[in-house]
Design a protein around this nucleic acid. Structure first.
Lengths: 337, 337
DNA sequence: CTCCTGGACTTAAAGGTTTTCGGAAACGTA
DNA sequence: TACGTTTCCGAAAACCTTTAAGTCCAGGAG
């Protein structure tokens, strides 16, 4: 444990110059002779000098730090967004101050105040679902960007996955595979994600002039629900040849139950999942064709736009980020194997 | 966007007192008349004054901020530890500065320097596996605590799950269920976790005077390997009545393959997993008996000990944290259903 | 020779807060 | 009145860095 941390004045006196000169030398500014700069740099290295970011921030008013406020602790979705953001920041010299509000508005306010008091340059709020959430940006002296869960206020900057478009893409893929009796199993209707994905389904089916097989089945996002829904569906609509599932968990449950009922996937029934949660989508048999929401990219993009907003170039509105269909073994033309 | 941030001198002049008095009033110190304090507080509220943490930290030398350095970005294990730590800190007034080194030593050094320059009060390093990792604490002016992955230097403070003890506990549970022909499928031997869990198995079997069924099978931590190992094992040792798996992924694969081969779980073969990764352990059928490493608790404990170290009460050594056996449906006395 | 230019360096202020110490008023005691 | 004590408040230093402004000197132009 070093006796004391070296300050710039230690460096200056070791190099035999004034503090101002040392500062200029260290920051690569003009008005310093090469030999002098050399001496200062050597002194700084010898003392392993690290400029005090607090003092620096006090003057410049910029801390080069942003707050990351997440609502879902154990976040299946928050984490990749966080990583993408951390990635975008880490490339530069930004640091990320992480706060978890655990879905509690009081705690959230508390964290916002704490971050403000730490003078962060900006804030990213990542939601636990794609449902719009109350704005936190009212009267805040710093820019805020919302990721995954958009703000209710359209003048805020939000980035969300394009669930409608992705669902349409998934269903179009099924249609292209020659499937015509397509059913839909998804999550609870109070999730905007579930509603959006159903809308995308209807959009694609409508354009193709194909009717949905049976009603949309809504339930929990779980594998158990996938199995249960499969049983109901295979009973009610025995001749379906494809299912679009609202999550990989549901899809994994469906595949399992369908196989037990003697339906082959993908030969008899093609299945598309959602989320590309790898532990499910690549490990199940057959591996799942599924939608990847590119959450890391979403996080990275949000971070980049936060930079822009900090520089005064805000981009208000809800931006839909494209998703990607990952085609694996659970979809193919009917009976093609 | 507020015109300008209020400073304590704004508060002071609005309240008609000096800066010093305002400071004392705001920090609840003595030597301020009640009426005066009242005025200052009112002024602060009106201006929605937030003390500048930078200025405060500059004086006190304490930023009330800790760095969290993680090595595995998408961490199955890092995340819970992180959450536990965030939890312990969030209770007080600490903030967490998150850095992801992505397993790169250079990047790690870079981040350590950045954190040092931000004057964090301490550092938590969370590993991507339980393999000991190089110490980062050499000559660092702040305390460091390692979580999940211990430091190679025994004079550092490290917290790791007690894999040996947990494995023994799991195997003792199988023995208590009357199982006597217990096999072991686990991950790559270059993981200390795999070696420790095997050691725990041998320990429990040795104490009970029971021989292991077949050789330990090592492979990837994946579901695919679980299936593959199941096929080999059921061929080589057809009369096994229990399997201890090194991960829930392996266990899930084993269960699936065993069922396809006509073996009932748990009636014919009991299965214990490891990790309590809920998407696997609770959603598979039957739900898996598995070891929960209590990673959030581990993270919280690491954070608390970092506090202690910051206060000068360091607790060097590698501390083994107890794990917990979560008993579900995949284990029972043989043929009990 | 003087004046000016520009380079190299220093002085000092600023940024917002905490804290030490001294001052002033009010009050009681001799 | 003189003095001590208590209570409340203010001036100023300190934390560390950046930067605007100023000093000093050498050398070139006139």
């Amino acid at each position: 444990m070093a006796s004391k941390r070296a300050t710039i004045s230690d460096v200056a006196s070791l190099a035999g110059v004034s503090i101002a000169t040392a500062s200029k030398a260290l920051n690569g500014r003009q008005d310093v002779r090469a030999a002098t700069r050399e001496r200062v740099l050597a002194a700084a290295a010898e003392l392993s000098f690290q400029p005090n970011a607090l003092a620096r921030g006090l003057i410049s008013g910029q801390t080069r730090t942003v707050g990351l406020l997440t609502s879902d602790s154990v976040g299946r979705f928050g984490i990749p967004v966080l990583l993408g953001a951390e990635d975008a920041f880490g490339a530069g010299e930004m640091a990320v101050l992480l706060c978890d509000a655990r879905g509690d508005a009081i705690r959230e306010q508390h964290h916002v105040r704490a971050l403000l008091s730490r003078r962060v340059d900006g804030l990213i709020v990542v939601g636990e679902s794609t449902n719009p959430r109350p704005s936190v940006s009212k009267e805040l002296p710093i820019p805020v960007v919302y990721a995954y869960g958009p703000s209710e206020d359209p003048s805020d900057v939000s980035f969300v996955p394009d669930d409608v478009g992705a669902a349409a893409m998934a269903v179009n893929h099924l249609l292209a595979m020659g499937r015509r009796r397509i059913a839909h199993i998804t999550g609870p209707t109070h999730y905007k994600a579930a509603r959006d994905r159903e809308e995308g389904l209807h959009q694609a089916l409508g354009e193709a002039g194909v009717a949905q097989a049976g009603q949309t089945l809504s339930g929990p996002w779980s594998q158990r629900w996938g199995r249960h829904a499969a049983e109901m569906l295979l009973m009610a609509e025995p001749e379906i040849d494809a299912v679009f599932c609202g999550s990989d968990q549901i899809a994994a449950g469906f595949v399992e139950a369908a196989r037990e009922r003697g339906r082959r996937v993908p030969d008899d029934i093609a299945v598309v999942g959602y989320d590309n949660w790898e532990v499910l989508s690549t490990e199940t048999r057959p591996a799942l064709t599924t939608v990847d929401m590119n959450l890391e990219l979403l996080g990275r993009t949000a971070a980049q736009h936060l930079f822009a907003a900090i520089d005064g170039k805000a981009t208000p509105g809800v931006h839909k980020m494209p998703c990607q269909l990952v085609i694996r073994d659970s979809t193919s033309p009917p009976g093609s194997s």
